[in-house]
Structures are given as C-alpha cells and as structure tokens.
C-alpha cells in the first residue's frame, strides 16, 4: 500500500487494521477498518483505545463514508481517520471537512492538484467536522 497522505503530526500507526467483526470480538486491536455498509456507531464505545480507523470508499459515488467520518469525530474520536479506496482529487476537500486526516487513494494523486483542491475555497457555508467556522459565523463574528 502506498504511503497515506497524512494531515497529522503524530507518527503513522503501524498496526494493521482489522475488520469490524474482528475488532468487536477482541479487546486489544487499536486499528479497525470500516466497510461502507458498516455502522460507525458500533465503534463509539471503543474510541479511546483506537488509534486508526480506516473507512472504505469502494467507489467515489458511495458517500456513506462521509457520514461515518463525521459521526466518529462528533463522538470525540481524535485518532487517525483514514479514507481508503476510490479517493479522487475532486472529493478530498469534502473528506477533510468530514474529519478525515489521512487519505489512501487507490490511484496516486498529483501532489499539485491535491494542494490546489485543498486550498481552493476560502470559506464554507456549513459547520462540519474540520473546525472551520461557517460563513454565517464569520458574518456575525
């Protein structure tokens, strides 16, 4: 697997991610992989022992992972949240907004295009999981 694009300062997590079933059946795993049809909320009781959650995006049209990301961040998860799969340059800004801080695209992305995509929009209309203030908050400072 290619090195993830990481937007965190801590060291990359080395332990391989186990399936949700395997994770829920054992007590010592610290990394888990969530398929797009699995319920992120099943992880909520265990967030404090997780260092990596990898969320699968099997096709770019499958947007369930965006909800999974936000749900995990809203529940207070602070570990690495990785989007893996059909991650395209046109989706990464949305993923970052939903709380993903590491990306593992199936096909490598052009670094310059990534930088442009992530810095393109100065302001956003909604509050999400990235801490950016929505435009309504800027308007009413």
């Amino acid at each position: 697997m290619a090195d993830p694009l990481r937007y965190r300062t801590d060291a990359a997590h080395e332990e391989p991610a186990v399936t949700l079933d395997a994770f829920l059946g054992q007590t010592n795993a610290t990394a888990v992989r969530l398929e797009s049809d699995e319920d992120a909320r099943a992880l909520i009781p265990h967030l404090d022992r997780l260092a990596l959650i990898e969320v699968s995006f099997p096709g770019f049209r499958d947007g369930r992972g965006y909800s999974a990301g936000r749900i995990l961040r809203e529940a207070g998860y602070t570990g690495e949240l990785r989007a893996q799969g059909d991650v395209l340059v046109d989706q990464i800004a949305l993923m970052r907004r939903c709380g993903f801080d590491s990306l593992v695209p199936d096909k490598p992305l052009d670094a310059a295009a990534v930088a442009r995509a992530l810095s393109r929009y100065d302001a956003v209309y909604q509050k999400a999981a990235d801490g950016r203030p929505p435009i309504w908050a800027l308007r009413h400072g």
């Binding site: 947007g63 909800s67 949305l94 929009y121 999400a128």
Partner: peptide, 14 residues
C-alpha cells in the same frame, strides 16, 4: 441554498 452548497457530507448521496 447556502447550507446545501458544497455540503461535505451530502454531495455523494444515493
């Protein structure tokens, strides 16, 4: 309209 514009969670709905 503003809330839905580039909504990060709801741009790839079913």
């Amino acid at each position: 309209r503003q809330w839905s514009t580039f909504h990060p969670e709801f741009s790839y709905l079913p």
